[in-house]
Amino acid sequence: MLDGTRIWLWGCRLAGALVLGFLLLPIFAIVPLSFNGGSILAYPLQGLSLKWYAAVVSTPRWLHAVANSLIVAISTVAIATPLGTLAALGLDRIRFPGKSLLMALLISPMIVPVIITAVGVYFFFAPLGLANSLAGLVLAHAVIAVPLVLVTVNASVSQLDKGLLRAAESLGAPPMTTFRRITIPLILPGIVSGTIFAFAASFDEVVIALMITGPGQKTLPRELLSGTRENLDPTVLAVASILIAISAGLLLLLTAVQQRSAKQNA
């Protein structure tokens, strides 16, 4: 009887651990291969080498793509963060019955499949001359990034201690001062988190990039996709590993921001 329970319990745990291992497998399987001395994508490694990374940084195609991706991601953030933050602050003040519908509409780009956004934007931008331009890509990326900012900032605005704001007001602080000195510092972690989300969303995005950019505006994920389909060699894995490292870095940054804000609140 007791043994049955134990077997059940440990069986469950083992299965759970296997599932978590499955989740990590693709990430840990390919990073070492990018350091392979040989060009075969299999284990055991034929010695360690950085030559594939050297190949990435000496190839204009990849460097051009990195530059494009950075330009697009930074511009996307520059649009999405202010728009999303303002809207989150606004939503907090609004009290009317349609509010949750409004919220649902504003974050709907997050749920609508990217291919639909890509096609809709393509049909719309093509006659305006915005297809095949970085500007068009930035606008489309801002669409998918802005809900992430909105949701994140909205969460920290709703946790904001309204008593503090009333206190500032009753002590005679003008609304702008209250906003600058109280509200902004308190929701800053939310804004930073949202910005990280938005940056990552744009930096990793490939479907819209595939639709509305020409050969002159290839981003890193787009080059990675062609590499995967046409010439899957360790150089491609080096690029994939760099992207994994960036994602992990952004995740750590996000965790650090959230922990700091949790500490401050406590």
Binding site: L20, G21, L23, L24, L25, P26, I27, A29, I30, L33, I40, L41, A42, Y43, A200, D204, V206, P221, L224, L225, T228, L232, V236, L237, A240, L243, I244, S247, A248, L250, L251
Partner: peptide
């Protein structure tokens, strides 16, 4: 972290990775 790291890694990178793992001469 085992959940969040894959979630943060782009879909494209993960698909590429599965291709490397699962292809005929793959891992």
């Amino acid at each position: 972290l085992a959940l969040l790291l894959p979630l943060w890694t782009s879909v494209l990178v993960r698909s590429t990775s599965w291709l490397v793992i699962l292809q005929k001469n793959g891992v």
